[in-house]
Amino acid sequence: MYNNKLIGSLYVTPFVIGFLLFTAFPFVASFILSLTDARLQDQLGAAQFTGLANYTGMVSDSTFQKSLGVTFAYVFITVPLKLAFALFIAVVLNFKLRGIGLFRTAFYLPSILGGSVAIAVVWRFVFAGDGLINQGLGSLGIGGVNWLGEPTTAMFSIVLLRLWQFGSAMVVFLAGLKAIPEDLYEAADLDGASRMKQFWMITLPLLTPVLFFNFIMQIVQAFQEFNGPYIITAGGPLKSSYLLPLMIYEEAFKYFNLGYSSALSWVLFIIIAIFTAVAFWSQKHWVFYAQDRGDDKGGH
């Protein structure tokens, strides 16, 4: 609207300053720190450059390998399950029925509250030895499970906490579904296409931009999960839920190894960067934007 470049630049100046000071500078600094043996309690001047020692050290660090493994397991289990479940419920909800708004509220609520400490605390009680789930099993005559004390079930409890928060992805899917023109389905009905076929041939292709958005957001968030493992399982037992963000935190603020912790955070950054880069690169092969079918409404 305006062509005055000077005034325009003035408006975005806060972002430029904030970006340089709180993002770009720490970003570069963390890489430099990752090449040193800096410790939290010492002056930074005392740190020595150690080259890539922090990175090569990871090769022989069994805790890191365990942490990397469980992080991938966590992401690869939660992201597809959460997206599939969110899409499934969105499709069920996308129907003219009474009380749909009420259900949407009920499903969306957990993703608003789910990241809080209060919910993590409740989760810990739900899965505790004498907690809600074991009481429920007991009343059915089934013996209790030591949920937080066994590696597999401890992981299961934090996976479930993330799946419980499927609502935000569902709301985005639902908005995407509502944006699909109804005449497409009417035409498909006339052609005698089954509901299943309509889902695969109309719904899913037209939903791919929304699926892409949800996928990126879920990947980025899942790789950064901290509250669940920190509060519910403390990363245990036997590091079975020791996700990378928790390890990064503990290396820095419990063991004071700033150099090693920075190197770990760069590994996490590179993993997330690879995933998002591949997703963005691959989207031309599977994401269907509206202009592809000669429609200038909406779209990218």
Partner: peptide, 22 residues
């Protein structure tokens, strides 16, 4: 600038944590 803005959305916060703390 817009690309940088969007990059901040995707950047994991833990990579900034320690330098910000210092």
């Amino acid at each position: 600038l817009f690309a940088l803005l969007m990059a901040t959305v995707l950047l994991p916060k833990s990579v900034l944590l320690i330098p910000q703390y210092l």
